[in-house]
């Protein structure tokens, strides 16, 4: 029991994932700044932001709408992100859970933050938040099938194995899945799904600052917004980690391999950052088309290739 609590709260759960995620968030902002010829924020900026929101600022409840749901949503999002994080990170750090179908659980847990944002935004009774919520909903509908196909591809590649630990072990004994044509296709599909899940440009319509002023988060302030930030930090770490576990043979935790593990995470985040800085925001309809047609097509091609053993 104590060990489970430790897993959940400290390592590799809340504290660890959030800290790493915060550093990655700094990395993302720093790279963005460098691309734009700027200097960028200091290293501890995400922590300042988080603690300022949590400790200093007042939390304002919406006048109309439902305060309880409004406040519950950020808690739920942190909870969902952390739980998903544990299921992803435990196998990555070579701690077996002995849980066979965990991939599907992870898949469902990863959608909890997005759904809680929607619930929270609808509870705030703000028209702009409602638009943001409906956009987030459409976005989820469009990328979720693609994400499922992506996971299915990995499962097929591993020989119908539903266990993340086994998938990582298979890759570490053989070669990483990304080293094949189908693996590369799956990687591209995965990157775009993650981009959409993190709601980064070009898929940031739910919070589009210039259109609907932060959309789904418009009414959040103080501690509630701090929790949303926390969930975002965690997601920024666990989603790239999930991709690494599925396609890039996970982490090995001895000697020089630790450096490799760090580099892998940084590389995936770097790709995400560069995509977000070299593209404008697209329209929700274009995003739906992008996933429903093109990305699904790519995923299906990858599946066919896997079936033929490429």
């Amino acid at each position: 029991m104590a060990v489970n609590l430790f897993y959940f709260l400290v390592f590799p759960g809340l504290l660890f994932a959030a800290t790493v995620g915060a550093f990655l968030s700094w990395f993302d902002r720093k790279i963005t700044a460098r691309v734009q010829f700027r200097k960028g924020p200091p290293l501890l900026q995400p922590f300042y932001d988080f603690f300022k929101l949590l400790l200093v600022k007042e939390t304002i409840l919406p006048k109309h709408g439902s305060p309880v749901i409004f406040l519950l949503a950020p808690v739920l999002s942190v909870f969902g992100a952390t739980t998903a994080g544990i299921f992803i990170l435990l196998p990555l750090f070579n701690i077996t859970t002995g849980f066979r179908g965990d991939l599907l659980v992870i898949f469902y847990l990863l959608t909890i933050p997005s759904f809680s944002y929607i619930i929270g935004s609808l509870a705030s009774a703000n028209p702009l938040a409602a638009v943001g919520g409906s956009r987030e909903m459409k976005l989820i509908l469009s990328y979720e099938l693609t994400f499922l196909l992506f996971i299915a591809g990995v499962i097929m590649k591993c020989g119908q194995e539903f266990n993340l630990y086994t998938i990582i072990q298979t890759q570490q004994e053989g070669s990483p899945f990304i080293g094949s044509i189908s693996g590369v296709l799956l990687f591209i599909v995965g990157i775009f799904c993650i981009q959409a899940k993190l709601a980064l440009v070009p898929f940031d319509m739910p919070e589009a600052e210039a259109e609907i002023t932060e959309g789904i988060f418009i009414e959040y302030s103080g501690a509630a917004y701090a929790l949303i930030k926390l969930a975002k930090y965690i997601m920024l770490f666990i989603l790239p980690a999930f991709l690494i576990a599925l396609l890039m043979n996970g982490f090995k935790l001895e000697g020089i391999n630790i450096l490799w593990a760090v580099l892998k995470v940084i590389m995936v985040v770097l790709i995400l950052t560069l995509i977000r800085n070299t593209n404008p925001r697209i329209k929700i309809k274009q995003a739906v088309n992008f996933f429903l047609i093109w990305m699904n097509l790519l995923a299906v091609i990858a599946l066919v290739l896997i079936a033929f053993g490429y």
């Binding site: 200097k39 960028g40 210039a210 002023t213």
Partner: peptide, 20 residues
């Protein structure tokens, strides 16, 4: 870029609820 307030942690936000 020339002045870049973000290096001091200053951000322009779109919603008054987030403002300091």
């Amino acid at each position: 870029p020339r002045h870049d307030l973000e290096r001091f942690g200053i951000l322009l936000v779109g919603s008054i609820r987030h403002a300091d």
